[in-house]
Amino acid sequence: MPSVLLTDSISVELGAQEPWPNDVKLFQQYEVEQILLPDNANCLAVQAFLKMCQLNHTLEMRGNAEHMSPSGRVPFIKAGAFVVAELDPIVAFVANKGVTLTERLDTTQKADMRAYMSLVSNVLANAELYVSWVDPATYEDVTKPRYGSVYPWPINVFLTRQKRNQVVRRLRVLGWQQKTLEEVYNEVEHCCSALSERLDRQDFFFGKRPTELDALVFGHLFTLLTTPLPDNRLATIVRSFSNLVKLCQVVERDFFEKTNGGGSSSGNGEGDYDKLEDLNQLPM
């Protein structure tokens, strides 16, 4: 089989020589007042992945996390001298240190896993961006106040507008901006249905142990379930797939409960994750 092109190979090689540092920090925006739907999903996914790998890390919240990141997107981790952003590069970085969740998967299953991760990244992530930035109701009520909350007037107005233009341009190029809200909800439902079919009655997508696919699905679905939005259609859609809700509950229970055991540790000011049992209180 022909080999893949090597990019960043030297830095990856250097990283492999050191073990996982003790003071790894995960950076994201302020959870309570600033972070938005798409970013929250990605941050939760990375946190879930690191906890599944039992890699120690602390959570650091900064108002300028987005600008600190080398790729411009959150979350990113600082492990020793390395700063790595977004789930895929972090998975590769961790794999280079010999830690992986997919060692017992064969190549077909690995390909399937990658395909489902693409599904979630293409459909759910873009749907979240659409709802946050293109849908007028959500943009006015939720996104605008939250995004600019850490900046003084008037730059909060400029920055929010600048970010919106950037996101809308990207969605237009991908063909999402032209969709109506109904079409977006249908896409989300279609995606969740495909995920639900694949998960079937298992605990996790590939057997009894979780993989990065489970972390990614957990990040997105948990966020959709627990973020209060003006229109809760997304939460309703996700809730209609009971095995997906069960997956989220299992991941939350096993990896996010503030227990003393295991490698998970909480950071400063970690927000209280709305427990899934409290979902009954959210408006349907």
Binding site: N64, H67, M68, P70, V83, Y151, P152, P154, I155, L159
Partner: peptide, 24 residues
């Protein structure tokens, strides 16, 4: 003045990276 600080490259020190962003 509205200032926007950005890192020049990936090798910028983290102490400087922490200060990237917008300020007024």
């Amino acid at each position: 003045v509205w200032r926007h600080l950005a890192c020049l490259s990936r090798t910028t020190a983290f102490a400087v990276r922490e200060q990237a962003g917008h300020s007024l």
